[in-house]
């Protein structure tokens, strides 16, 4: 198994790479689709804003490549949000950002109201149907994982696991060969390491 880490200049490449290293995997850093030619699985990491991240993916050719790719793909945090159709995160332009469109759905601004401050930052619990996906093997219902985000994907057809912060948030998603984590598995202790390991081995 060769794993490629899609390298956009806005991403949290290093921490995801180190988490994979701790699992004994040395990923290929792929700034372009050509650099991932030998990979059998892909991870799309991401922190920051949707607009700049999409521009980086379009410049590098990754946006088009991912739309026709059939390899298992895991999006992490912003990388998960980018898999959807459109984001309300406008970067000041006042119009929605068009995303990769690999999974139907839209990214909305989180409005926690009484639940607490914005953004949603910290360790929150996972709710899911045990046995519903290989990515969740060995994970206990109610396990804590680390979230940092101000935008979210509402619960929908692709939702695998949720967390609650004012509203129910898609914490993990699955759509065919494409999956995603809204939280940061690379920063979620043993629980996150297990999810990454499940992706590598699955």
């Amino acid at each position: 198994m060769t794993l490629a880490l899609i390298d956009t200049s806005t991403a949290n490449i290093a921490s995801v790479r180190y988490a994979l290293n701790r699992l004994g995997v040395e990923p290929v850093l792929a700034a372009t689709p050509g650099e991932a030619a030998s990979a059998t699985k892909l991870i799309l990491p991401g922190v920051g804003a949707a607009g700049p991240a999409m521009r980086a993916l379009e410049r590098s050719g990754w946006a088009d490549a991912l739309r026709s790719d059939t390899r298992p793909l895991l999006g992490v945090c912003l990388g998960m949000q980018l898999l959807f159709g459109e984001s309300d995160e406008d970067s000041g332009a006042g119009v929605p950002v068009s995303l990769l469109g690999l999974i139907p759905g839209r990214v909305e601004r989180l409005a926690p109201s009484d639940a607490g401050p914005w953004p949603h930052m910290g360790w929150n619990t996972l709710s899911f149907q045990p046995g519903s996906d290989p990515l969740l093997t060995g994970i206990e219902e109610g396990a804590h994982v680390y979230f940092v985000h101000g935008f979210y994907v509402p619960e929908g057809a692709s939702t695998l696991a949720t967390t609650t912060y004012g509203t129910r948030i898609s914490a993990m998603v699955r759509h065919g060969h494409i999956a995603g984590c809204q939280f940061h598995p690379e920063r979620s202790g043993a629980v996150g390491a297990r999810i990454l390991s499940n992706f590598i081995k699955g």
């Binding site: 806005t10 922190v47 920051g48 804003a49 953004p119 930052m121 940092v148 985000h149 101000g150």
Partner: peptide, 8 residues
């Protein structure tokens, strides 16, 4: 905040 997002 503009470059990296408020979350960091």
């Amino acid at each position: 905040a503009e470059e990296f997002g408020s979350q960091c």
